[in-house]
Amino acid sequence: MGKYLLRRLAINVILVVIASSLAYMLAATTMNPRAAYQGRQPPVPEAVIDKTLDAYNLNDKTPVLQRYATWATGVVTGDFGKTWNGASVNDELGRRMFVSLRLLILGTLLGFAIGVALGAYSAVKQYKFGDRLIGVGSFVLMAIPVFVLATLLAIATYNLNRGLGFTLIEYTGEYNPKLSGFDQFLNRLNHLILPTISLSIGGSGAAFYSRIQRNMMLDVLGQDFVRTAMAKGLRRRTALMKHALRTALIPSATYFAFSVGTVFTGAIFTEKIYNWHGMGAWLVDSINANDVNSVAAVTAFTAVCILFASLLSDLLVAALDPRVRVS
C-alpha cells in the first residue's frame, strides 16, 4: 500500500507541475497586463511601464520562456510572484484560502451528511412515499444549476427582509466589520446561512449524494452478508448501520474526498453571487484583470488540492473497504 501510494504521489506531482506550467504559459501568452497601465490618464511613459512590468515579471517584451523561468524559480522557493499592481500573490493566497475554507467547510460537510442520511433512508423505504418524495426532490434540485439556486435564494431573502422591514438574513458579504466580539461571530454565522444552504442542498451536495447513496444501499441490502448479520441475531438497525451502510458508503466517500479537495476553489459561483472574496472569486477577477501570476497561482493551488483529494480518496476507500487493504 505504501509503495503504491508513493508511486501515485510521484505521478501526481509530475501532473501538477505540467498543469501549472501550462496554465502559466497560456496566461502569460494570451493575457495583457500592459493594458491596465496604457489606458491611464495622464498617459504613463512607456519606459516607466516597462520598468514596472519588469519588476513584477509581467513584461510582454521579455521572452515568455525567460518569464517562465523566473516564475518557476520563484514557485520552487515558495514565492508566487506579484499581482498585476505589485501586491504579493502569496499574501492574497493566504488570505483568500481561509475565506473559502470558512465559506465551504460547513456546506460541504452538511451536504454529505444530509445526502447520505436521506439516501440510506430512501433505500430502506424503497418505493414508499418518503423515497418517492426524496427522489423527486433530488431530481429537481440536480437540474437547478448553483448560480440559479443561489440567485433564487438571494431574491427570496431580499423579499423576506423587505417584508419584515429589517434584515433577518444577510445575503451579501462575509461579515459586518463594524461589529466586534460575539456580535461579529453571530453576524458571520448569519452571513453563512444562504451560501451554506445553496452549497449543501444543490447538485453537488445533498441531492447528488442521496442518489448515489440510495443506489449503493439498494445493492448492498440485497446481499447475503446483511441477511447473515440479521440472522445471527443483530437488530435490524444495527445490521443496517454497521454492515450495510458502511459498505455502501464507499462511492459517496470517494466523491466526498474530492469535494473536500476542492473545498478551497470549488465555490466560484457562490462566492461571486454572495460577494465573498475567496479563491473562486479571485480566479474570475484575475482573469478579467489580466493578472497572469494570480491565475497561475490559483491553478497551481487547485492542482495541488486535487492531488491531495485523490490521495485522500484512496485512503478513505482503504479505511472503509478491507479488500483494498489486503491486496
Binding site: I11, L15, V16, I18, A19, L22, A23, L26, A27, T30, M31, I268, L283, V284, I287, V295, V298, T299, T302, A303, I306
Partner: peptide, 19 residues
C-alpha cells in the same frame, strides 16, 4: 486523459473563449 483531467478546464475555456 489524466493530464486533461488535471488541467483546470474552467480556466482554459475562460481564457481562450473570449479571445
Amino acid at each position: 486523459v489524466e493530464l486533461l483531467l488535471v488541467l483546470p478546464s474552467f480556466l482554459l475555456i475562460a481564457i481562450i473563449s473570449p479571445r
